[in-house]
């Protein structure tokens, strides 16, 4: 599907907001889902669509919040208004939406966008959002911010005060998105407090639609041989209990 880029807003040196027309896309966009975006020109080594989670969507547009991580995302970040890009989606399984609950959101770096979309869709929930990043430029609106260099919010990791937060407040549900080591640490802490957790995973993908089995994540199995699920089709959202963390 060709989607027209309506607006490209630079947040800072690393992060950009790309707003697209969703004309022709019938499916509803749900928090946790993603799209794959092909670059406007053929770039060696970057011909596959880039999977990017959805940041916002309404009846006529959807918005991606991207971080420049390499050549591909750099080209995307500099795409100009009215460029038509090949986009597949929305793809994958969404977060479970709750109503009237106490919810904890935990994100790291570019794990922020899907939780922002989720926050908008959680009805009548009391939400606490903690977010961490390496530098001040990785920090976006939230309740508690952490940076590794201490340049913004508290100095430390997003998990630094997590136990204190959990000791002080009860949560019905938690959602998390960020780098795998962070998710692993979050999952381990939340398990101690018996709080259900949904995580959104990131993995190298080829097709994005469940065909190639390239984006495998190992999940719990009662069989003696390992069991892998597809991040693109069976995820990217999984119950944390299901995942075997490396």
């Amino acid at each position: 599907m060709k989607c027209k880029l309506l607006e490209n807003i630079k947040i800072n040196e690393d992060y950009y907001l790309l707003k697209f027309s969703r004309e022709g896309i019938k499916a509803e966009f749900q928090p946790g889902q993603f799209v794959t975006v092909k670059l406007p020109q053929q770039v060696p080594g970057q011909r596959l669509g880039i999977p990017i989670s959805i940041y916002q969507a309404d009846t006529s547009t959807f918005t991606l919040f991207i971080k420049i991580l390499g050549e591909g995302t750099r080209i995307l970040a500099h795409a100009i208004q009215d460029t038509e890009l090949d986009i597949l989606g929305p793809l994958g399984q969404a977060f479970t939406l709750l109503t009237n609950k106490t919810v904890l959101l935990i994100s790291g770096g570019v794990g922020y966008p899907p939780l922002r979309f989720l926050k908008d869709k959680l009805k009548d929930c009391q939400i606490t959002w903690i977010h961490g990043g390496k530098f001040a430029s990785d920090i976006f609106p939230c309740d508690h911010a952490y940076t590794e260099d201490g340049s913004r919010g508290e100095k430390g990791l997003v998990t630094s005060d997590l136990r204190d937060i959990l000791n002080n407040q009860k949560f019905d549900m938690a959602y998390s998105c960020g780098p795998n080591p962070m998710l692993k640490a979050v999952a381990s802490i939340l398990k101690d407090y018996d709080i259900p957790l949904e995580v959104s995973l990131e993995e190298y993908m080829a097709c994005g639609i469940g065909v190639c089995y390239g984006c495998a994540v190992q999940v719990v199995s009662n069989d003696e041989q390992p069991l892998y699920k597809r991040v693109c089709k069976d995820g990217p959202v999984f119950h944390a209990d299901e995942i075997i963390w490396e």
Binding site: G45, E203, Y204, A216, Q225, L227, Y228
Partner: peptide, 12 residues
Amino acid sequence: AGNPSPRLYETE
């Protein structure tokens, strides 16, 4: 079961 990740890498 298939192989452990990473399973993919795009070359030039």
